[in-house]
């Protein structure tokens, strides 16, 4: 076996230049600021809660009877909700005429 090391000192990078290389590498090693997309998995709890809240806000509207909606049909917001539930634009048009 050949146990004597080869002298590669001529290939060594001078110390000052090497430290500059280390510093440049460290500067470029900083991770990019997180994007919304990369943050999404971390925010999934909040996203789920907001989605659940939005869904729950629709439940009372779905359970309202048409009579209850008709009583307040003059209200544009209720008319819009009634239209979204029934698909009938009448209440919406009546409400618009009343403005």
């Amino acid at each position: 076996m050949d146990d004597e090391r080869i002298n590669f000192s001529a290939l060594e990078v001078p110390a000052g230049r090497w430290e500059a290389l280390v510093q440049r590498t460290l500067e470029r090693s900083r991770p990019a600021p997180p994007t919304v997309w990369t943050q999404l998995p971390r925010l999934r709890g909040a996203v789920f809660a907001l989605a659940a809240l939005a869904l729950l806000s629709w439940v009372p509207a779905l359970s309202w009877s048409n009579d209850e909606l008709a009583e307040t049909a003059a209200d544009p917001a209720v008319a819009l909700m009634q239209y979204s539930v029934s698909g009938d634009p009448t209440a919406l048009l009546e409400s618009a005429h009343g403005w």
């Binding site: 290939l11 990078v13 090497w18 590498t25 470029r28 991770p31």
Partner: peptide
């Protein structure tokens, strides 16, 4: 430094090996 030596063993150009080591290590850290 090991990254520089591996790059040097492939490209055989010290200056280019320095750039490659810097780019590769920085990319790996990210």
């Amino acid at each position: 430094r090991p990254a520089y030596l591996v790059a040097l063993s492939v490209v055989r150009l010290p200056a280019e090996a320095e750039d490659l080591a810097q780019e590769s290590v920085a990319s790996a850290m990210r």
